[in-house]
Computed example of a mutant assay.
Amino acid sequence: MTRPKDLDPSSNPRALLGCELRHARERAGLSQEALGGPLFVSGSFIGQLESGTRRMHMEYAVYFDEKLGTEGFFARNCQAIAKSKYPDHFAEAAEAEAVATTIRQYATLLIPGLLQTKSYAEEVFRAYHPTATQETIDAHVAARLERAHLLDDPTTPLFWAVLDEASLRREVGGGAVMAEALRHVAGLGRRHRIIVQVLPFKAGAHASMAGTLKLMEFTDAPPLCFVEGPDMGKLLDDPATVTRHALMLNLLQAAALPPKESLALIDAVAQDYEHGEQHP
Rank of each mutant, 00 (worst) to 15 (best):
Q116F: 02
E274Y: 01
T101D: 10
A181W: 14
E171L: 15
P280Y: 00
Y86H: 04
P259D: 11
W160K: 05
E135H: 06
K83T: 04
L30S: 08
T53D: 07
Q32A: 12
I103M: 15
V99K: 11
F73D: 02
N77M: 05
L109Y: 08
A107Y: 09
G36T: 09
P154R: 10
L151G: 01
R244P: 02
N12D: 02
G211A: 11
P200N: 01
E26T: 09
W160D: 03
T133S: 14
A256H: 03
E146K: 13
A75F: 03
L182P: 00
A107Q: 11
S167P: 12
Y128S: 13
P154Y: 12
S10I: 05
L252W: 01
L150I: 15
G204Q: 03
V177Y: 07
H275N: 08
A166F: 05
H149D: 14
L49S: 11
P154A: 04
P38Y: 13
A148G: 12
A142N: 10
E123Y: 06
L115Q: 02
L49T: 07
L265E: 04
A139F: 05
A205D: 10
Q105N: 12
A268M: 01
A98W: 01
T219Q: 14
R190L: 04
P38D: 05
M216K: 00
A246G: 11
K118T: 06
R55L: 08
A254H: 07
D238C: 04
S167C: 11
L188M: 04
R104L: 10
V172W: 05
E261P: 04
C78Q: 15
A205R: 13
Y120H: 03
E95I: 06
R147P: 00
G113R: 13
T212M: 13
L265F: 02
R3T: 14
R76L: 11
F226W: 14
A256P: 03
F73K: 05
Y273V: 03
K85D: 11
V62S: 06
Y86Q: 03
A96D: 07
G187A: 08
R54M: 01
S42E: 10
